[in-house]
Design a protein around this nucleic acid. Structure first.
Lengths: 125, 125, 125, 125
DNA sequence: GTGGTCTAGACCACC
DNA sequence: GTGGTCTAGACCACG
């Protein structure tokens, strides 16, 4: 599964889909010509409303990121979305801020979070 | 300035304020008893409407993060959550797992996340 | 009509709505899963501003009393507090003590309070 | 102590004072010529701000309910406030609604509250 | 159609 | 001066 939804983040679902498709293309996980899940399938997989997926795909099509071929599906277009470093940084910032806010709810401070992550790194290496 | 707004992120302003206040607490920049900017001042500083700030502060108060004293201001609350250590550790694990899943959706790896967090630590010192 | 506003009481409108929704639940007029009036409808019915209703519903949602489903409405939540019986009894005792103290401040005796409550029971049936 | 403050009710403090003084006079607990606590004393007793008491007393004086004699204190005036049955009923309604809302927070319904109160009545008789 | 967010601006309560 | 409440009205997100 290339796409997932975080219902707690406050970011509209359709926006999360758009962003993730763009990021997936930008980093090469999706390549021009690749076929995306049908709107129905994705809606079921993510447990969200069909129209929300429709809207995300439509906006991506308008931008030229996706191309719809009636009857055969939706595909990654030739025009690759540009995600510059600034945009990437902004995304990471947003994710981190949200993480730290959530951690703070349980009384964790920045150091504890850093330490927890470092441990994961050691284990994985 | 402890708080800033990214109007392009799609995240509601009041939610950004909530997250950043919590983050500031996690980072140690705000400590129990500290006074926050007045609602009016913060609204001016962020160039947003007064009511948006009021709403953010209010939600933080309901959650017990902030305490308001009529006529004198808004302060960081003193009551912190009491959870036993095991429960706490489990909570942190879960939060980190969610973070890494989300980061991965956008193509960030553990190193990038760690680096982003470290930068935040430096900024705060 | 489940909810009404007393504009002369000095109690904020949004608080009156919150209290009356909770009261309706305690009385059994609202049960888990029931749909509430739309924010717009209730605003019209009570002749108050839309945002005041929004605020009341929102606080009730944060407390877990209500659940909103984007695009379809606001419903009475299913999760009810889980407290053990002893704790529960102690809680009720405390609430009743406060009630009687307050009622006494205004010169009401236990009989009058009992009578007032009984009338509410009749109305609800 | 004739007056008490319920900080959870949402009713402004000065209004609670005004109402309770009026009710106390209406039911005869305070009679014309009786001396009230000084503003300073009452503020200390109720743990509220001095100005809040000042304001309550001032409004009561404007209404003719109280009379201030410079240097010797504040006294109940000759003009007795009229509290009709409707006003009394409204007050009781407000108190009961708030009680039931609070009870609902802990999952109690109207019947349980009634039963709890009935038990108190038996004990006291 | 539903709820969610934001703005602009007024007036009140309290220190 | 502080925060609290309410109104009026716009625009967005979602089903």
């Amino acid at each position: 599964m290339l796409i997932s939804i975080d219902s707690k983040s406050g970011v509209p679902f359709y926006r999360q889909i758009i962003e993730q498709v763009k990021f997936a293309i930008a980093r090469g996980d999706l390549e021009p010509g690749d076929r995306l899940p049908t709107v129905r399938q994705l809606a079921v997989d993510l447990s969200i409303n069909l129209n929300t997926v429709v809207r995300a795909y439509r906006e991506l099509e308008i931008e030229g990121v996706l191309e719809t071929q009636q009857g055969s599906g939706t595909f990654v277009g030739r025009k690759r979305p540009r995600i510059d470093d600034l945009e990437r940084q902004r995304m990471l910032d947003q994710i981190l801020t949200e993480l730290l806010a959530r951690a703070s709810d349980y009384g964790f401070n920045l150091d504890e979070v850093l330490q927890g992550l470092s441990q994961r790194k050691e284990k994985s290496s």
